[in-house]
Design a protein around this nucleic acid. Structure first.
Lengths: 212, 212
DNA sequence: TAGATTGTTAATCGATTAACAATC
DNA sequence: TAGATTGTTAATCGATTAACAATC
């Protein structure tokens, strides 16, 4: 069995991916760990360590081929796959995510939105219909849905998550400000916006204290 | 000078805050580090270590007073302050943030949105007018704006950030998928949604490989 | 070949966990 | 007082950085 990769490394992978894409767009096809370290802000040593968790992508005396490395990291991130995706909660945030084309481009194909509030049901976002959350589980099974984005209020998030797992979802991208308690073989990634904002708030206060 | 608190600790503070608020709502007024560890998922030892960075809030043989601890952590996070805030970029995400009342309740008072696309300028989100990004710097100075939320496309984010810093902003909450390069005394907190989604993608793939 | 740069081992640093004396 | 639980020091663990032999 391959050795377990630490979350610290995993969370750096998307950043490598983004910077390598940038380099390609700037038509830079070769880079050393030292050069990359200067633009990405990790140490050259860390970059080499990170990449060598997945294989020897570089060449001594030369560095890394940007196209190859980009393609390898895309593969490691699983971006060659496409996933049928739904959004649960068609409020402002759910709509914003539905409208963002970048996620579709990366293979997360949004198939429908679900909503409990009858005022929204039947409306359309882009070409996506907003469906009644009552039919969500059925829809998941019939349409081979793999990923759900939870954009509901915190009160209903756990209940929705339970239903998602029961319907056989593989992954949840959770924007509700709760830590979901789930058993079963499901992957959860949280985006806790309030926690991020409060961190900014802490840092602002710390800064003010420093200059006092 | 007070010793520097590590980012690992800082990022746990909002989670303590959230769980303590929950406890208060459930009318639980006393808790030990052991009990808290069971609901929040950190070790009791880590909880005591974390809190003791900021002071001895507990009592031997008793535990912690939830009200007091909640209030102390609120203060540490700077949530007693209010900050005049603007949103730059009035697309879906900018509008979603403008519409989310939770941020206002925590003291981040959104005063205006700014937009480059003339189609949006003059429209209203809630009772907030969308203003021309051309007048942003002037507005910041005249209205004592402390925080800016960047919701622009990645192409304009760095340019906007430069202008924000020049106008004297204190903190930036950045949703654009770039790492802003800024000098000057400004705090930046990033929300990189694509990185979060790609992390989910990695974990999904890893899971599939494990079951193969 | 000489120079550059990787892959990888070893050293260091920092964060987490364990242990326990202090004390409510 | 006896029991509970903190605050804090010490031990452990894991992640980052440094160093360098291998090699293109």
């Amino acid at each position: 069995m391959a050795k377990q990769i630490s979350m610290a490394v995993i969370r750096r992978l998307p950043k490598y991916h983004r910077y390598l894409k940038d380099l390609l767009e700037r038509e830079i096809y070769r880079i050393s760990s030292k050069e990359l370290s200067e633009i990405i802000g990790f140490t050259a040593s860390q970059i080499r360590q990170d990449l060598n968790n997945f294989g020897g992508f570089g060449q001594q005396g030369y560095g890394y081929n940007v196209e190859e490395l980009y393609s390898e990291i895309s593969k490691i991130l699983g971006l060659h796959n496409t996933y049928n995706t739904i959004i649960v909660g068609a409020g402002n945030l759910g709509q914003a995510i539905a409208n963002y084309s970048g996620f579709q481009k990366s293979g997360f194909e949004i198939k429908a939105l679900f909503e409990a509030n009858p005022r929204f049901i039947g409306l359309k976002i882009r070409d996506l219909e907003i469906l009644d959350v009552e039919v969500m589980e059925e829809y998941i099974k019939e349409n081979n849905i793999k990923i759900a984005v939870i954009c509901t209020p915190k009160e209903s998030a756990q209940d929705i998550a339970n239903k998602l797992v029961k319907a056989g979802i593989s992954g949840i991208w959770n924007f509700a400000p709760v830590d979901l308690q789930l058993d079963g073989n499901v992957v959860v990634e949280n985006v806790h916006l309030t926690e991020s904002l409060f961190t900014l708030s802490y840092l602002l206060n710390e800064k003010e204290e420093a200059t006092r």
